[in-house]
Design a protein around this nucleic acid. Structure first.
Lengths: 345, 345
DNA sequence: TATTAGCACTCAATTTATTAGAGTGCTAAC
DNA sequence: GTTAGCACTCTAATAAATTGAGTGCTAATA
């Protein structure tokens, strides 16, 4: 607040608010009427000239009104945005039930967010790495094929069919199961590394070839698909904002959503920046986002935490003039509700 | 071929071919030069007037060239398209390995198709209904929680966590497992109906409450998510065709892909219409498609069959002037390769 | 000294006119 | 039956004219 006196702040706020609503450059006359400052358009003009010089607003061309610059938005988000206690969005309506598959819940959350905000939404599945192994079981399904079932805390289940070259005795299988459970239970996914597996192989002793074949497959099953999945929804909402919907930009953006690949960088970035003080909510304006295609957008991310190190990221992507207050609020509410949904799992 | 003499057919073909390439209405002069008919533009004009009257081509406005009508395209696809033996697309390059998860294979296939054709692609996961149960197992993972693992032929695995109110004895669980396997093995998913379950409950006798709780959950697990999943790719390819990429149309189309919901009707329709004689390949032109949003597109679908009643649908969606020959060919090739990939599973 | 009314000026956006050219249909000749 | 020729139509592209929102500056005012 060094360079801006009180009145400038008020004017800036008025400009941004108006622009968020209309998406049109806003002129001095509008502000002079809109705000309760009772200043003439001429005065506003003078102040606007100052604000522009300071870099908070921009004039798209000589005879146009002003629009907020990235710096302006940033100031707004950091200092001006009110922590409004608006009517809590009724996200509960979706009745996500805990027993539903995680995947389905995530898809639904993304959908609800997108419809509620009118922006595009993404959500990543939680990382499992820190999650502990609860139960593991190998079963002979038919000759030459073993099924490995792995259950993590939070009841996440993984399967893997393991083809084996020779028959395995029921008794051996039983012993293998006991061994796996005693050695691995309670370990997190990341703790089950090559060393542990090698150790197990030694422990198993005699059947080395077959057993190590199986153990390798188990290790693989544990680590595969560690890549988080990403679900998106409402990508087409971007067509609602003219500044994003010209063919080229739209194509690029929607493509980014479809590929999902690139969205991963948003997630890592969000993790890095996460700051408990802010409820894990981050706002990236324009070029601040790590995804190139979104340089004309703003992105709001939130980190959810289901406990046991299972963290994931939720993101809302919209135009720079997005309704930050509403979005941040919605996300906050959602965090609380996700907690409720998953707390007893 | 009643109403069209040989020359008219040739001219129609020339018009369609040219239009497929350029996307611009094609005039008499172009055809007069293009084709080997050695006719003047005036003659072509006369023939074109006839073709228009017969409904095969359309004049967008008085002084424009002609474009094919739906009827024209239909004629082309049914009668004129050559079963060209073009260089076989190198779909093998993608190296889909059988041991990969089905889901991943399907995603990849969609992607390859989209990139290869420059149209949008969709693929449905195969229906399981007719698939047989190979193996079922209940395991006590921890107090109050049972894990049901269900394996179908083709090694499709389903899981379900079943919360139970009271403890279940190890021995009882064992008996339950034996019972389930003896009674259900070899039955298809659709054969495992309410009757069968009721029968099982009676068979189990004494522990009725708990056991029927579990059995109900098992039945649910078997039948849930019977809804086929749909994967899409290359939705943004539609931006490559100006006639589809104006904001409104594009929004609608991409939205349809995102929702996936509506694509289901394509699948059912494709199943209904499937006709072995045509390798299960169907072409829907314009309004022939069951999906409203695609009335300005053409859709080519193919039915793949992994055996054991596991059938799914692949679809290519593009502009009406899509390169039918190439698309149909690519799909044919793909069918063969899918067979190879899955035949030993 | 801060504010404001007033006015000339700018520039995107909209509307209107103008032109160019691709293509047609028709007629008369071959 | 085919073709050359010509008048006509209609879109698309370009140019010109108009509008209007908004600015910056200056001089008057509180």
């Amino acid at each position: 607040m060094y360079e801006l006196d009180d009145r400038k702040v008020k004017i800036l706020q008025a400009i941004i608010r108006t622009y968020l609503e209309t998406g049109e450059p806003v002129g001095s006359r509008t502000i002079s009427k809109y705000s309760d400052l009772n200043l003439s358009s001429a005065t506003i003009r003078n102040e606007m000239a100052d604000l522009e010089e300071l870099g908070y607003i921009i004039q798209p061309h000589t005879s146009a009104g002003r629009i907020p610059s990235d710096k302006g938005y940033r100031f707004y988000v950091d200092k001006l945005m009110e922590d409004q206690q608006r009517e809590v969005q009724d996200l509960k309506d979706l009745m996500i039930q805990r027993q539903d598959k995680m995947e389905r819940v995530l898809k639904q959350v993304a959908k609800v967010l997108a419809t509620n905000t009118n922006y595009a939404a993404m959500i990543s599945s939680p990382q499992y790495r820190r999650n502990k192994l609860k139960f593991i079981q190998l079963t002979q399904v038919e000759d030459g094929q073993i099924l490995a079932v792995i259950v993590l805390e939070g009841n996440i289940v993984k399967n893997k069919m393991i083809p084996i070259s020779e028959m395995l005795e029921t008794e051996d299988l039983f012993r293998l199961n006991v061994m796996l459970n005693t050695s691995l239970n309670g370990l997190t996914m990341e703790e089950i590394n090559l060393d542990v597996i090698t150790q197990l192989k030694e422990q198993a002793g005699d059947h080395s070839v077959l057993v190590s074949e199986v153990l390798d497959a188990v290790a693989q099953a544990i680590h595969e698909e560690e890549d988080v999945e990403i679900f998106t929804s409402g990508a087409t909402n971007i067509f609602k904002y003219p500044e994003l919907s010209d063919s080229e930009r739209a194509r690029e953006l929607i493509s980014t959503f479809e590929e999902k690949q690139q969205l991963a960088s948003l997630i890592t970035r969000s993790f890095e920046d996460t700051d408990t003080e802010k409820n894990g909510i981050q706002v990236y304006i324009g070029n601040e986002t790590p995804v190139q295609a979104m340089k004309d957008c703003s992105v709001v991310t939130a980190t959810y935490d289901l406990g046991r190190g299972m963290k994931g990221t939720i993101g809302i992507i919209g135009p720079k003039r997005m309704d930050y207050e509403n979005v941040v609020n919605t996300l906050k509410t959602l965090m609380v509700q996700l907690d409720q949904i998953f707390e007893r799992s």
